[in-house]
């Protein structure tokens, strides 16, 4: 290559761009995925004391975990809380999303920030505040709320709400209002128009919102921490409490069950609603 006008000759580092970028990418995925891979793997180890390489593989730890009442109860409580929180967040969140998607009106930004705030205020701060608040309510009314299922349900509904608001609004914003108007001019009654035109279009957003809401509630740790009590403890808190005492394949089996539930839910959601759009 002669050309006096050609740019500066190829320096050694030019070829390093792709390898460095891909290397960074691989390192990032190793960081993110290795704890999950490790815990799933160990849940099948035969020996109770973790040793490498394992002497063999077994499913015994799943049986052992299922036999332990605290895990069973935690799982059931988390499931029930997730369902209640999802329902509440849909009842409260879908109408709110319909209003927010109308576009600009005075106070819209403020209302939107307020509804998304539970996502932004740190869990530990919000949890502590809610705990103190519920105790004050209890003192004033004489009804126990903190450390009951319904106290937790309130906290979890708040965790779930921003997700339904956000995803349903996102699915509505792209919606062409003329579709609905076209249906109205063609003689559809408004409720019929909603059922036949608006609903099918926002359904992916609602389904995704519900699934995200459920997952966010199911995995929550910080907010629930203050509000759990005897008899009402969520699975993540049972896991954390157990981990403070011992690390063994039983807890790995429990964690693997949670990983499986959440992954299945997310892969399912992705078919309705591209997950990347939720962020």
């Amino acid at each position: 290559m002669a050309g006096t006008r050609s740019p500066s000759p190829r320096s050694l580092s030019d070829g390093s761009f792709r390898p460095v970028m891909v290397g960074g990418c691989v390192a990032a995925f190793v960081m993110v995925l290795s704890p999950l891979v490790a815990i799933v793997w160990i849940s099948f180890f035969e020996n109770k004391i973790i040793s490498f390489p394992p002497t063999g593989y077994t499913l015994d730890w799943y049986r052992a975990a299922a036999a332990m009442p605290q895990f069973r109860d935690g799982f059931v409580t988390s499931l029930k809380l997730g369902v209640v929180a999802t329902l509440v967040s849909l009842i409260a969140g879908v109408p709110a999303a319909l209003v927010l998607a109308r576009g600009r009106f005075p106070g819209r930004e403020a209302i939107q920030s307020l509804l998304l705030a539970p996502l932004i205020v740190p869990g530990i701060v919000a949890g502590a505040a809610l705990y103190m608040f519920l105790i004050e309510v209890e003192l004033a009314s004489g009804v126990q709320v903190a450390m009951t299922f319904w106290g937790l349900a309130l906290a979890h509904s708040l965790i779930a709400l921003p997700w339904t608001v956000r995803l349903v609004t996102a699915s509505l914003v792209g919606l062409d209002p003329q579709l609905k108007e076209a249906a109205l001019t063609m003689g559809a009654r408004p409720l019929t128009a909603f059922r036949l035109v608006t609903w099918p279009l926002i359904r992916p957003g609602v389904v995704a919102g519900a699934l995200f809401a459920f997952i966010a509630s199911f995995v929550d740790l910080e907010k629930s921490l203050f509000l759990v009590g005897p008899g009402v403890t969520t699975l993540p808190i049972v896991i954390v409490n157990y981990l403070e005492w011992s690390i063994d394949p039983t807890i790995a089996a429990v964690a693997t069950v949670q990983i499986a539930v959440i992954s299945a839910g997310l892969v399912l959601t992705d078919r309705y609603f591209k997950l990347a759009r939720a962020f």
Binding site: G3, S6, P7, P9, R10, D14
Partner: peptide, 8 residues
């Protein structure tokens, strides 16, 4: 086989 930045 030159990359774009060396083609001028």
């Amino acid at each position: 086989h030159l990359p774009p930045y060396l083609r001028d």
